[in-house]
Design a protein around this nucleic acid. Structure first.
Lengths: 330, 330
DNA sequence: GTGAAAGCGCTAACAC
DNA sequence: GTGTTAGCGCTTTCAC
């Protein structure tokens, strides 16, 4: 079982040279039908599979795609990973998962490694990385797809189209006479600021609502931060009647705290998340949220990577549609 | 930025041979302190990193560990992945995620690939794979760690110790005068049968309860299967007053259906899951469940792999403790 | 304690 | 349409 089968073996059995075997597999130059058949038969007979290490060494291009995200245990990223892997699998490429824990040094180190090992590509959701550094990775020849609300330099980008969904959310909330809107946002030092907050703010005025500075609290994307953020908001003299959250994990934390404090959701305070992580429909009350389709992001990221492999040079942005999902929390 | 730095470059700068650079890095033979310092300085100066493709080609051993699971989007496996990656990261190893969708052919194909590409190791939760096939992988020289309730041949094994937790669950349930115990179990054709069901059954009698054949329904590990399984149970003339579920995903589906049917949980029917997936404390009522510590499984699997790298030959089983977690559903 | 050199398996010029 | 060959960057004998 430990016997390595090489192209040389296949070549011998098929009565051709190793080069021809290589060309049959890659299709990079024409091969006579009869030769092709013989080679394919030999491949099957011997159970040959290309040694990717040798190929990588020779071509300077590995078959690995790094998925660099804050935390793969966040269901949003887990689902993205599944979709990406699914899409890449047919091409013989593998997805390597890398958690950054939202730390800049980890983001940087992982990216550097992707360059050094000549990864086939990188799909990244940067969090604290300076925007320019992704361009450097792309310039070094590693295709980069960023999955984020805002662009990170001139690299391929899967971007949500969230304007309409956010409008719907505001319509929904203001239609129920809620005007004092708060947000439990991400940390202040996240690269690219907080586009979800900015979008909400810029749109709120049109609906006769506002997100005043004193109703914005910040923290990590954790349940704990959601809980303490919500608690803080409830102490404000100008108390919010609707609370948006940077993502669903935060929203669940807020829900925890609301229950603890005896604050009725959505009676007293409407609560709205972002992402539609798998658990959003599991919590009670079920989470009203702005859905970002993780699996579509994964598929589109794979698509962008493929185009790069096929020679595209100019960077490109593709959009995925966000949707306002009304459940019970608002 | 695209400039490759090789050992030869480092050797030139340090004024030694490439072999010495290699030995400094690997520590496989003694190097004079002065030489070591010079080499390390050169490595830092040039920002050298070993080319893993070349190393893999030469040594016949890659730095990749495959995580082969039914679905990485299941929070249990996502958490396992995070822990595994965390643990392996310091050793310069990477985790490749592979979804099998619980299909035997995928399990087989992924395993075969791990052998062909000489992966450093494999962590697998088999589902429909014949037990013997894992031994074949191990025999081919790829360290295998199986994460499953029961052994899959003579390979390393991270096994839950669930007896005590299951006893506690039975005590809890029977202490509340519930004796008609049902289970929504996994599919019949899963390899290794259904150890969770068997354990429950073998213990139930000691608590004056029983899990009669007509109160066992089966399906995939999905929310839908949980819902339809629960619906089916509710039509039984001998209606259960406690329902155990093969995992928490199933339990959530059962909860969905209970709500739909107006069945009070835990009033009419107690509901108990397995795993303690992250969402278990999110659903309402919060899920009472038998917790399997995913992150500990990930860490221990990494540990077992390391021991193999360091030369252990005999297979080994390590245990992780399951715990009965009482929440609101039972 | 260190170096020289072979070779892992593949791809891509360069022949013919 | 096919073969020959060099060499990717590393590890590891073998030699000193």
């Amino acid at each position: 079982m430990g016997e390595r089968v090489t192209m040389a073996d296949v070549a011998r059995v098929a009565g051709v040279s190793a080069a021809t075997v290589s060309y049959v597999i890659s299709g990079k130059r024409p091969v006579a039908p009869a030769t092709r058949v013989a080679v394919e038969a030999a491949i099957d007979e011997l159970g040959f599979a290309v040694n990717t290490a040798a190929r990588t060494l020779r071509t300077g291009r590995s078959s690995l795609v790094a998925l660099i995200v804050p935390n793969i245990a966040n269901p949003f990223f887990a689902q993205l990973a599944a979709a990406l892997q699914e899409e890449l699998r047919g091409l013989g490429m593998h997805v390597v998962v890398c958690n950054t824990w939202a730390r800049r040094d980890e983001e940087r180190a992982l990216l550097a490694e992707a360059v050094q090992q000549r990864f086939a590509g990188v799909v990244v959701t940067p969090f604290r990385l300076p925007a320019g550094e992704l361009e450097a990775v792309a310039a070094a020849g590693v295709p980069v797809v960023v999955s984020a609300d805002v662009p990170f330099g001139r690299v391929d980008h899967v971007a949500p189209e969230a304007r309409t969904a956010t409008r719907r959310a505001l319509e929904h909330v203001t239609g129920r006479q809620r005007r004092r809107i708060a947000m439990i946002a991400g940390p202040r030092d996240a690269t690219g600021g907080d586009p979800r907050l900015e979008l909400l703010r810029s749109l709120a005025l049109q609906y006769g609502a506002a997100v005043p500075r004193e109703l914005v609290v910040r923290g990590e994307h954790t349940r704990e931060a959601g809980a303490s953020g919500f608690a803080e908001l409830m102490t404000r003299p100008y108390r919010p009647d609707a609370v948006f959250c940077g993502n669903d994990v935060i929203a669940v934390g807020a829900l925890d705290k609301a229950r603890e404090l005896g604050v009725d959701v959505p009676g007293e305070v409407a609560l709205i998340g972002h992402d539609d992580a798998s658990f959003a429909s599991l919590v009670r009350p079920q989470l009203t949220t702005i859905r970002y389709p993780a699996d579509e992001v994964g598929r589109k990221a794979a698509r962008l990577l493929l185009e790069r492999f096929n020679g595209r040079e100019v960077h490109k942005t593709v959009r995925v549609q966000a949707h306002f999902v009304v459940r019970a929390s608002a």
